[in-house]
Write a protein that binds this DNA or RNA. Structure first.
Lengths: 109, 109
DNA sequence: TAATAAGGTTTATAATACAAACTAGTCTAT
DNA sequence: ATAGACTAGTTTGTATTATAAACCTTATTA
């Protein structure tokens, strides 16, 4: 019987963290999202959202575009990258697989 | 349309953390488990497992019983508590719910 | 009796999540 | 025209955390 527990401890933690999981899932359904939209969606504080976004960008999972409306007002838009999409779907695939095995293991044990 | 992203950021983090998620799921299928068995199951180092167990115990999710074989050799057994069982099943319920909503949102958006 | 092993715990450290404080510019009221 | 409040974020400080290294106690082996 294959046991899912080692796999569990090796989940992609960059994505697994709840705030980032929320952000990544939201972004995977949007072609593009604004900073404030993401903030409202997730309920995170600005500072917290900002630092999570930085981490995702550093990993190459999202692309952050800072534009200036009429060259003055900052307006940040965020997109998921192909890299980010595939990391997210890998995460879900792995998670679902683990969950299946876990359920089976529960019944056997 | 209900959006799951705020709920996501509020998942029970004590359980959500991968190492502890593994431990809790393993324990929920065992009436009782030994320390070394858990270590092998999860692949965690002793120190790491020990500190995760302490946190789960402090939360009342597990019960740790330290016995001494022939009054000499330590032999630690671990059980999930009713409290822990219900926290775990709440976690999965919430997680599955969130996942459902997420899938629907993906399709709509 | 020195060395190694078993079964853990404690300590040290590096990374993290988070919010408070800050920045830079705009808008409004007086 | 300038004080005050607002917008859209970023940076900084802090408290918590995950992790492994070092340690402890007893038993076993050489």
């Amino acid at each position: 019987m294959i046991m899912p527990f080692k796999e569990m401890t090796r989940l992609n933690k960059l994505i697994h963290e709840p705030a980032r999981l929320a952000v990544m899932n939201a972004l995977s359904a949007c072609t593009v999202a604004e900073f404030l939209f993401l903030q409202e969606l997730t309920g995170l504080t600005k500072g917290n959202l900002s630092s999570h976004l930085s981490k995702l960008e550093k990993a190459g999972y999202i692309h952050i575009d800072k534009q200036f409306v009429r060259k003055k007002i900052p307006h940040t838009t965020i997109q998921i990258t192909p890299n980010g999409q595939s990391a997210l779907s890998n995460y879900w695939q792995q998670f679902d697989h683990i969950r299946e095995l876990t359920k089976k293991w529960q019944k056997k044990a």
